[in-house]
């Protein structure tokens, strides 16, 4: 198959699905509130683009703040755990319990703690909580993923603990950290949207809030428009982090 065909294939499929959807809506006369045709969604996207972009930025910025917060806390904690096996044994069960507890289950609690007037704090906190684990477990794994022979070499030359940490364990962890951040970024976005649903509006009017608002007014096309933006944003964030991971690995291995 030629490169052109390979590149075009997904777009052709999307176009075909959209065409089928549009035709079905028109032929079967589906009510717009139940399933709007793609053309109605497009109209909504065009007429509301300013509001949608503002909401998208609101959600994205909170996801990014959450990602940075999670990254700092997770790496510091992983470092402490990496330096002290006792601490690791102490923290691990707690971390597992927190990780397997669905974020929606703790969301109402976090909303109360953040203060009902500060939905954005709750959103950042919840998104950070979801983003925390891939970075934390990546860092903990990475700090241990040292080539055993390289470790012996450091023994042989009498390296001290600090040298071992800075020159061996931290650099060894880099690929794991990159992978962890890539996964965490996607989760932070999902976490932010879920948290918006639970935390309600407050001052923040993210994409989830748009979806809820449109749903209350039965403006189904607007709901779809927000979902489309959310999907595009997720895809963009994903490819950005994929590219960052790729570049990071190239820098780490020199090719």
């Amino acid at each position: 198959m030629s490169r052109l065909a390979q590149t075009l294939a997904p777009f052709v499929l999307i176009a075909m699905l959209l065409a089928a959807w549009e035709t079905a809506c028109r032929v079967l006369a589906v009510p717009t509130y139940f399933l709007p045709p793609p053309s109605a969604v497009a109209v909504s996207l065009i007429s509301d683009w300013r509001v949608l972009l503002q909401s998208a930025w609101s959600t994205l910025s909170m996801a990014l703040i959450a990602l940075v917060t999670a990254s700092i806390i997770a790496q510091c904690l992983a470092l402490a755990v990496g330096l002290s096996p006792v601490l690791e044994r102490a923290i691990r069960p707690l971390a597992v319990v927190l990780q397997v507890t669905p974020v929606v289950a703790i969301a109402p609690l976090v909303v109360i703690w953040a203060g009902l007037d500060h939905a954005e704090r709750a959103i950042v906190a919840l998104a950070a909580l979801v983003a925390f684990f891939p970075i934390f477990s990546g860092a903990v794994t990475g700090l241990k993923a040292v080539d055993p022979d390289l470790e012996r070499l450091f023994d042989l030359y009498g390296a001290n603990r600090l040298q071992r940490l800075l020159r061996l364990r931290l650099p060894s962890a880099v690929p794991y950290l990159l992978e962890g951040h890539k996964v965490a970024a996607g989760l932070a976005l999902i976490g932010a949207v879920v948290a918006e649903f639970v935390a309600g509006s407050g001052g923040a009017q993210g994409l989830a809030w748009r979806i809820l608002e449109a749903s209350h007014r039965m403006q189904t096309a607007n709901m779809f428009a927000a979902v489309v933006i959310l999907g595009l944003m997720g895809a963009m964030l994903n490819s950005l982090l994929q590219a960052l991971e790729h570049a990071g690995l190239r820098w780490w291995r020199g090719r």
Partner: peptide, 12 residues
């Protein structure tokens, strides 16, 4: 000094 079976170099 030791030379191991694999080169055992730090990739970074």
């Amino acid at each position: 000094a030791v030379v191991f079976q694999a080169p055992t170099l730090a990739p970074w």
